[in-house]
């Protein structure tokens, strides 16, 4: 799966920008998503790890 499927028929530069846009979007979603998960369960995981249970 290369970036060329994203915008078929578009110029190579536009396709390359689309690839960069998709990766940036993925990065932001993952940053926010994992941040929310860390906020929700991070402390509980550390406590569990600390107490060995």
């Amino acid at each position: 799966m290369t970036g060329t499927e994203l915008l078929t028929g578009a110029s190579p530069s536009i396709q390359a920008l689309a690839v960069i846009g998709v990766v940036l979007l993925e990065a932001i979603v993952l940053y926010v998503g994992y941040g929310a998960v860390e906020e929700a369960v991070g402390s509980a995981v550390l406590d569990r790890l600390a107490n060995g249970r």
Partner: peptide, 30 residues
Amino acid sequence: AVGAFTYGRAGVIDLGIVTALLTGSALGAR
């Protein structure tokens, strides 16, 4: 960004690989 643009213009970036790697690395980095 510059590298992805340069290689992306040649259509050689495998988004499947990038997505899978990023999914793991974003968690691992935290």
